[in-house]
């Protein structure tokens, strides 16, 4: 009955249970503290979307779909396209209330975990949405002016939705990876738009470019030009985030759901392909934990993780098949 006792102990004294594991430099799921879970990437998972990607990090599964459409720009920003959640369009009442929200939507519904209730998006979902929004727009991964077809007449709208299918912690990393991979998905060029350019030359080099058909605007009609080369929508940076939790004064890479709910401090470091930081998000904590050394360690681990993820994304696009990195972090043995 030893296993039962362990289970009882975990339920009654979760903090103590984790602390004992962490003291031995190992986590209840067998990972070392700096190890990431097996990460799988499947680009083009949804055939009906213009761009899509499914990401699994351990028990967390996230799927992102992007649809491109032509729409009228907002009066306030005549030369900017938008990146919106699809349901803004679907629910008109929501659209009128939140006319100026354009945040890629992250949905955490009861499908993925009993923690979430149906109804309006939970706080965690909104935090994740805002996280993606900040990285994409404020950290200038995508320039919305690139989505402009004709100022104040027509712009591209990218409807981006991230749906969590199974929740086991670290949804920020998974969502960002899914969104970025979906944006990189060359399938985004095969737009449902009439006469979309269906055979553009796609370079396999990393980073691939999101492509939209070359279009012209005249007399209120947007036309795709079949024989022109595609417009290349540039991703200026390829951000990859790394989330770490501080639990019992130790840093845990890629926290699972149980670890996330126990840890009171969380750091998410996002870096781009040049090794520059895009975003650092640290919440919670106190009592002398997040010293500069700890934060330096976070950034170091993020850099190591970037290399692994980059390789994975490159392979995914080159080979067009499901690829994965087994427990990322093997190369970065460090005494923690």
């Amino acid at each position: 009955m030893a296993t039962d006792n362990a289970d009882v102990f975990r339920r009654i004294q979760p903090h103590e249970y984790f602390r004992r594991f962490i003291e031995q430099n190992v986590r209840p799921d067998g990972r070392q503290l700096h190890k990431f879970r097996k990460t799988t990437l499947n680009v083009g998972a949804i055939s009906t979307a213009n761009g899509s990607a499914m990401v699994r990090i351990g028990g967390t599964t996230v799927i992102c779909g992007i649809k491109a459409e032509v729409a009228e720009p907002k009066i306030s920003t005549p030369d900017e396209g938008f990146l919106d959640p699809a349901h803004v369009q679907a629910h008109s009442s929501y659209a009128t209330q939140h006319a100026y929200i354009s945040v890629p939507n992250v949905e955490l519904s009861p499908i993925c975990s009993p923690k979430f209730r149906s109804g309006p998006p939970s706080e965690q979902a909104q935090v994740a949405s805002e996280f993606l929004n900040k990285i994409i727009k404020i950290s200038k991964v995508l320039s919305l002016t690139d989505l402009c077809i004709e100022p104040s007449k027509a712009v591209w709208v990218l409807y981006a939705d991230v749906l969590c299918l199974s929740y086991d912690g670290n949804v920020l990393d998974a969502s960002l990876l899914a969104l970025v991979s979906a944006l990189l998905d060359p399938g985004i060029m095969s737009l449902p738009y009439p006469m979309a350019n269906r055979a553009p030359s796609v370079s396999n080099s990393f980073p691939p470019l999101v492509q939209l058909p070359k279009v012209t605007y005249s007399e209120g009609i947007v036309r795709a030009l079949a024989d022109e080369p595609v417009t290349r929508l540039t991703l200026y940076r390829i951000p990859v985030s790394t989330t770490l939790s501080l639990l019992a004064k130790r840093l845990l890479s890629d926290p699972s759901d149980a670890e996330e709910s126990l840890a009171d401090e969380q750091v998410t470091v996002t870096i781009d392909e040049r090794g520059r930081l895009c975003h650092i998000w640290k919440v919670g904590g106190g009592s002398n934990t997040a010293t500069p050394d700890v934060l330096k360690e976070c950034i170091q681990r993020a850099r190591a993780r970037y290399g692994d993820v980059k390789g994975m994304v490159e392979r995914a696009f080159k080979e067009r098949r499901v690829v994965f990195v087994a427990s990322v972090g093997d190369e970065t043995e460090m005494d923690t």
């Binding site: 900040k134 990285i135 404020i138 950290s139 200038k140 940076r237 781009d272 520059r276 930081l277 895009c278 975003h279 650092i280 998000w281 640290k282 919440v283 919670g284 904590g285 106190g286 002398n288 934990t289 997040a290 010293t291 500069p292 934060l295 330096k296 950034i299």
Partner: peptide, 18 residues
């Protein structure tokens, strides 16, 4: 003292952040 909350967006380097 110790950072309780930090949120940084934009393009920056590690050194800049420190």
């Amino acid at each position: 003292g110790v950072v309780l909350y930090s949120e940084s967006t934009g393009d920056f380097t590690e050194d800049e952040w420190w």
